[in-house]
Write a protein that binds this DNA or RNA. Structure first.
Lengths: 205, 205
DNA sequence: CGATGAACTCAACGGTAGATGAATTCTCGC
DNA sequence: GCGAGAATTCATCTACCGTTGAGTTCATCG
């Protein structure tokens, strides 16, 4: 971390991508509010002003972090195709394996930020409703009357998995091998999607 | 909100309790980092310096917020007593109904803060392990080898419920009547506690 | 090679946060 | 009714933060 001269650096380098990467992990680790542009700049070995030069405001930087070359919806499509009797298992597996990719890091950034920031929370809800749940309902052909509760229940289990395993790192879940998690949680998701829920029929216990 | 004179106020009043209450809802709504002492002071109609006078640092204020007259462990004891075949349902019901009490508000403060703050996260983990999970294992007589994963899975579903229903307010879960949630989620918790989990036997799928 | 613009840094502004210490007003026991 | 101490506020310090504008160095194209 030597003192850096002013002005443009020699050679060609994709500093912009470096900043996005640093920002993504920073947002994932600390959330939107707790992440400072100065931290991101330091991690990318760059002046804070350069971050603004590329991305404008801090909000814009956050949006750039969420803007991925791979659409999470594609992963979902893959998981939904196949035998409906094991959709739950495939969904959980897709989720767990995706977590180590940039998609997962962006997801961590989004979820962690949403819990602490009302504006990001709205963004998160819109994404889950419009881009995930809607697609799930359509592809699985869930009855319109039951669909909202069923998908919300799935969201609750998946969000809980993300929170405990990744955001809070609670053992032994945090370091359990993927297939253990898949075997344990998959059936839950399966039941929420297709199982017999007294709740959705309006029946009370 | 008229201009307030300096010095002690006439009459007797429990300003300290007022501050704790204001701080509890503030921490629950915004989390530790996003909550400012000035906000708490304003909500309690008091000068920021008074908050320090009573509680010292912001951390101490947070701990005071978590220090409740009612022990959450007591609620748990109540739910575990009775037919083991419906422990899952009773646990979820206890959780959902407790949420509107100060215990629930403190829980929201703790969870929301834990997601955004490493120090609080450690506090949260210690509480779940030592005060909740340990008691659950003991009272239900779970096999020591399976217990950690089983309780962690329960934690994941409960945390997910808290996150989606309360912290993020995702519909229709956020405004679903308690018994709907209990009927839907109870069996999941039941299975995590006593059900057949290929994962806990070391068997891989 | 010269110029234009992109990449990059410096220094600073205005805002807000947590914390502190002194000053003011009240209560209560003697 | 007076004095000690608790309750309360004021003004202020230091430390960051996001953001801006001006200045410096490089790459590229004519």
């Amino acid at each position: 971390m030597m003192a850096r001269r002013t002005g443009r650096r020699p050679g060609r380098q994709d500093t912009r991508a470096t900043i996005v990467k640093a920002a993504r992990t920073a947002f994932a680790d600390r959330g939107f509010d707790a992440t400072t542009i100065r931290q991101v700049a330091a991690a990318a070995d760059v002046d804070p002003a350069l971050v603004h030069h590329y991305f404008g405001t801090k909000n814009d930087l956050f949006l750039a972090v969420l803007d991925l070359p791979v659409d999470p919806a594609a992963l979902l499509e893959e998981a939904v195709a196949g035998d409906p009797a094991q959709v739950g298992t495939r969904l959980v597996r897709a989720f767990v394996t995706a977590w180590d990719s940039p998609v997962g890091t962006a997801g961590a950034a989004l979820l962690r930020s949403a819990v602490g920031n009302t504006t990001v929370a709205r963004l998160f809800r819109d994404l889950v409703y419009g881009r995930i749940a809607a697609r799930l309902v359509r592809r699985l052909g869930l009855p319109p009357q039951e669909a909202p509760l069923r998908t919300a229940l799935v969201a609750s289990q998946i969000a809980g998995l993300a929170t405990t395993r990744y955001l809070l790192a609670m053992e032994p879940l945090a370091s359990a091998p993927p297939e253990v998690v898949v075997a344990a949680v998959g059936p839950t998701v399966q039941r929420y999607l297709f199982g017999d829920l007294p709740a959705v029929t309006g029946e009370q216990v």
